[in-house]
Simulated scan of single mutants.
Amino acid sequence: MPHPSSQPDRQRQLMFAMAQVNKQWRRTLDRALAPLGLTQALWLPLLHLERGQGAMRQKDLACSLALDSSSVVRLIDGLQAQGWVERLDDADRRVKRIRLTAAGLLQVEAVKQVVAGVRSEVMQDFPAELLDPVQAALSAMLDRMAALEAADDAAQPDS
């Protein structure tokens, strides 16, 4: 009779599986969005900007994408060249704000349609009764990680 996995082993396996699901989800979306000429480097910031509901500060976009500022500058340059975003002037010239253009909003809608189709296909055999408990567990984990990050930030000396 096989020995049941210990709690730490099961936790490790769960975290590994979540990381693998995240990687595979992005690869799957990249393949599905390739006919639109989009890669993750293009569609992900568009979705983040759309969720921001209006102009977003460049540094907030960088934070939401977990990128450094210089990478985001190049990324925004590419999105702007496609006509999907525009930079806005601000009273404080050090603050850079970005917003989606009308063309960018159309691109986001196309992305969302493709994503919805892929999500439906991927989740078609997922038991409906597990959606809420899995969502609750993931939300609790995210909340705990945010609390740990905030505590760590609070413990850091100001620079």
Rank of each mutant, 00 (worst) to 15 (best):
Q11Y: 06
L130A: 08
T28D: 11
V95W: 08
G104V: 06
L75G: 03
Q80A: 15
V111P: 06
R27M: 10
Q113F: 04
A102K: 13
V73K: 14
P2I: 14
L38Q: 14
A91G: 14
M56P: 00
P4F: 09
A155W: 10
V108Q: 08
G83I: 12
T101W: 06
Q124C: 08
M18K: 05
P4Y: 09
P133F: 03
L67S: 05
W43T: 00
E149Y: 05
D90V: 11
M1R: 13
Q13I: 11
G52I: 01
L44A: 15
V118H: 01
A147N: 07
L33M: 05
Q40E: 15
P45I: 02
D153Y: 01
R51P: 01
E149R: 10
L29T: 01
V108S: 05
A32V: 02
A34L: 11
Q53V: 09
G54E: 14
F126S: 05
G117T: 00
L148K: 10
L75K: 04
L131Q: 13
A32M: 03
L33K: 03
S120F: 06
A102L: 15
P133Y: 04
L61K: 07
R87I: 03
P127N: 10
S120A: 15
N22T: 13
A34H: 08
A155Y: 06
W43G: 00
L36I: 04
G78F: 01
A103I: 02
S6E: 08
E109K: 14
R57S: 07
Q107N: 03
A102T: 15
D90F: 08
A154F: 04
A34S: 12
L61G: 04
K23F: 07
A62C: 06
A66F: 07
T101Y: 05
G54R: 07
H48S: 09
A19S: 11
P8N: 09
M141W: 12
R27T: 09
I76P: 01
R27K: 15
A103Y: 01
Q11C: 05
M145E: 15
